[in-house]
Amino acid sequence: MRSSRQIHAWLLLLPALCLLVAFTHYPVIKTIARSFFGFGTRWEGKASLDNYRFLLEDDVLMQVLFNSFLYAAITVPVSIILAIAMALWVNSKMVGRGILRTAYFTPTVLPMISVANIWLFFYSPEIGLLNKLLGLVGHGGINWLGDPSVALYSLMAMTIWKEAGFFMIFYLAALQTIDSNLYHAAAIENASKWTVFKRITFPLLMPTTLFVLVNALLNAFKLVDHLFILTKGGPNNASNLLLYYIFENAFSFFDTAYAAALTVLLLSILVVLALVQFGVIEKRVHYR
């Protein structure tokens, strides 16, 4: 009886397990193995730390890592703050809020590739919308994607534009679960709008913020589609991000072994981030 239940359970788990093993666990193990045993596209007989040693000497990697962290450090908080602001605004009673909600959500619906193509028109040096607007006020224009000191920030602006609407939906849903009597009680106590936000709304949104934070950070490291369209990591790696650098190593330079080592590095960064988030922040989050 007990063993037949066991078999039953395993059979039910099998389909999902097959997919997970084939597309997640096996690739992860193979990647780790390759980072130790590989050289270029070949396998070598004995394990070595050469690929990892090279990580430390790679100046481009340092640049890419710095870019990636800067990218996350700016896009994540800015999109979260914007998302909360938009959600608070769209949640208030006003005419046309349905249209406003849709408008804010539209960037999320679009695929990253098409978004990047739209922004390519904005950012083009000669015919681009932004430079045309700057031309109206007599400015000579900025090479948004070609100037190494600007390119990464141009990418960030686009990412924030795309992500904030998505996170707004979560905040909007969370706002609507807050009991309106809490706001009535606060109004009776003559609490200012800022006090209400600081002491009621924001703390009650913390579970959502944690969720959004995890997603936003993962996305900051995961999203690279727009790099293919906009900058290809250039100029001179000024806008290169870790995942795109892995892609370059694996499929442009055909150094799959080094790409594997880079992947292990990316995985470790993500694991550490996730642990920090759940460990530190969850203690300070109130769950109902």
């Binding site: 009597n181 009535h184 009680a185 003559n190 002491r199 009621i200 703390p203 009650l204 109130h286």
Partner: peptide, 21 residues
């Protein structure tokens, strides 16, 4: 006057306690 300026207090049916405090 706004509710806070009317110098009154209120007890709600649902108590309206702040769950995180």
């Amino acid at each position: 006057k706004t509710p806070g300026k009317r110098n009154l207090s209120m007890v709600f049916q649902s108590y309206a306690l702040f769950p995180h405090l």
